[in-house]
Computed example of a mutant assay.
Amino acid sequence: MARLAALHAALADPARLQIVDVLALGDAAPSELAELLGVGSNLLAHHLKVLEREGMVVRTRSEGDGRRWYVRLVPETLDAVQVRPVREVARVLFVCTANSARSHLATALWRRVSTVPTASAGTHPAGRIAPGAMAAARRHGLDLPAITPQHVESVRARGDLVVTVCDRAHEELQFPVDVHWSVPDPIGPGTPAAFDDALADLERRANALAPHLALRPA
């Protein structure tokens, strides 16, 4: 009962409820949260401290700009919290830097959990999908065709819900991003375990996002 009371006390503020609502679908930098809420950095820091104290959110350092941090929701602490309603979209577009691992794995997972169409792209496309990503897909029974990575500007279309799955892509895109997932890059370590960890992270996030999206009527 004491834990439940502490949880409700931490959420007893409209700004903190809005932070939870935003983070329920993806990660955000403190500066992005401050801008969204229209509050100063000191007030935002207070709200984040309250949520961190109860284990509702954690911070991770950006793999792109090491001076930057992202705030992530710890969803198992908030199973009883109602998040945002269903949103209608034409397609879900997953974007990473090279379009060679995380974004392709995300699309393969998305096809497993949702009927909303999906595609992937990169800000600096590689020449091919990483062999480690292909191997991880095979290990987990995912349909991942060996297609050529594409640039985001040639793939993005009107009505897309854009989900960045790497920090570098999120930080350099020049158009608004709908959802950000701060997923560590498995290509650096290059081990099967690193790709499996990224896949597990993406799967958890896809399962959380899917119930809140529906296909927009033609």
Rank of each mutant, 00 (worst) to 15 (best):
P85F: 00
T77I: 00
R84E: 11
S100D: 02
F94I: 04
L109Y: 05
V92P: 08
P85Y: 02
G66D: 06
L78S: 04
V113A: 02
V71Q: 00
P75C: 03
V83L: 08
D65M: 01
A108V: 10
R91G: 06
P75I: 07
A106K: 10
A106C: 06
R72D: 00
A108M: 09
R72Q: 13
R72T: 03
L109R: 07
R102D: 01
F94T: 05
V83Y: 10
V92W: 09
Y70P: 01
N99F: 04
R67M: 07
V89K: 05
V86C: 07
V74E: 12
R112W: 07
V89S: 03
N99G: 13
V81W: 06
G64S: 14
R112Y: 05
A101Y: 08
A106H: 07
V83R: 15
S103Y: 09
E88A: 15
R84G: 07
A80V: 09
C96I: 10
C96V: 08
E88S: 14
L93F: 13
E76G: 05
V81P: 02
H104G: 11
T97Y: 13
L105G: 04
R72F: 00
V83P: 11
S100G: 14
R68E: 08
R68Q: 12
E76Y: 10
R91F: 09
C96S: 15
W110A: 02
T97A: 13
R68I: 04
L93Y: 12
F94P: 02
A90E: 15
Q82H: 12
P75N: 03
G64N: 05
A101H: 08
R72Y: 01
G64M: 06
S103I: 14
A80E: 08
A101I: 09
L93W: 12
V89N: 04
C96H: 11
D65I: 01
A80M: 05
R111I: 01
T77E: 11
V95P: 01
T77S: 10
L78P: 06
V92M: 12
V92Q: 09
H104Q: 15
V81I: 11
V95C: 03
A80Y: 08
A108H: 07
W69P: 00
T77N: 08
H104M: 10
Y70Q: 02
V92E: 09
T107Q: 14
F94M: 06
A101L: 06
R112G: 01
V95D: 04
S114Q: 06
L73G: 14
V81E: 11
V86K: 08
T97P: 10
A80K: 02
V71H: 01
T77L: 09
C96F: 09
R68Y: 03
A90P: 00
V81R: 02
V113D: 01
V74H: 01
L73H: 12
V71W: 04
V83M: 03
V92R: 11
